[in-house]
Design a protein around this nucleic acid. Structure first.
Lengths: 199, 199
DNA sequence: GGTTCTAGAACC
DNA sequence: GGTTCTAGAACC
């Protein structure tokens, strides 16, 4: 390219980051044939392309090769890092996709198991609530039958009822509150039937 | 291709599903230039390629174009369906990826909600357990203080304890079982302290 | 549907 | 790292 006699075949562009092939026919015969093994322009172009050169057709039919990544055509130009083969990339994406899908499936299964467990816990809690109600009924029955007696026993029933703190029982609490307003026996019978009705 | 005078430039192959360019230079000058707009062999090859032709180099340097999808070179040959552009495919994968990510995000949210619910259930259950223990202590205290009396009351304690069905209480059940083996007052005191120690 | 540049893939 | 075929993409 330094050779002045070749200036009408090939010469640098003004930006000094490429070159113009002035006479492609002569270039093929006199330069490509002598300096490269390549016989075809396509092969020459593929090589330049793999070093980062782009080809532009000038209006006079001449071809301009420019490498936008270099500052000077005289510097060492390295072959561009090729993209990983498409198939590999595709398989990578595909396998990532598969991993995501597997994870999703696993998570969905886990969620189903968790929901089942929550349902079990809820039904257990319902069972416990039911049994506590039964216990309360039995206790009230004990008061009615007279084998549980005295002011302390009444206080205990009240405490017991409030300790359960269940919205479902609020009307029963209200009834039991009346125990301290004198209607002890009557209130107990009402409470017992209320409890039986909501079990 | 029917023209006999062109047989030394281009001719059909024996299988009749392609053709051989015998003299590429003459082919370019005499045929490509006259019948096609194309000036370059590359363009001609690209066109043939998009119709399904593959190129083979013969040992004598001649080029053999074969279309393995056709039976005869004389039939109508249709342009191959192009693959959907890579970018479209990439975007498809990307959007599927986005859908997966959205699903993951949704599932994570669901799991957080579920965990919150489980924590709520657990704390409720702890509360219930604590209150049941307190109730049991009060009941036992009642037995000790004498305001709860008789065989029925004892039976009730046992029933109450078993109705709770909690592994944590199993040693307490065992203690209470002893109530029916004569050591009534002593067992009740032990049970009360056991209950207090695990609250 | 042809043209051209570009880059992947396989081969050497 | 060059060579060659192939096909994507953009443009006409």
């Amino acid at each position: 390219m330094q050779n002045q006699s070749l200036q009408n075949i090939i010469r640098k562009n003004e930006e000094n980051n490429g070159f113009i092939i002035v006479n492609q026919k002569e270039f093929l015969e006199k330069i490509l044939f002598q300096y490269y093994k390549s016989k075809t322009f396509a092969s020459f172009r593929r090589s330049l392309n793999s070093y980062g050169f782009q080809v532009y057709q000038l209006q006079n039919g001449q071809k301009l090769f420019i490498n936008k990544n270099i500052i000077s055509i005289n510097q060492n130009i390295h072959k561009r890092n090729l993209n990983p083969p498409f198939q590999n990339y595709y398989q990578l994406i595909e396998s990532e996709h598969q991993i995501l899908l597997l994870q999703l499936t696993q998570i969905k299964k886990n969620q189903q198991l968790m929901e089942q467990n929550i349902k079990r816990v809820l039904s257990l809690q319902e069972e416990i609530t039911r049994k506590m109600k039964l216990t309360m009924i039995q206790y009230i029955q004990g008061l009615l039958d007279g084998f549980i007696k005295g002011k302390k026993a009444e206080q205990f029933v009240l405490q017991f009822c409030f300790s359960i703190k269940n919205k479902q029982f609020s009307n029963i609490f209200e009834t039991i509150r009346k125990i301290y307003e004198g209607q002890f026996q009557k209130s107990l019978i009402i409470t017992r039937y209320q409890l039986l009705s909501i079990i």
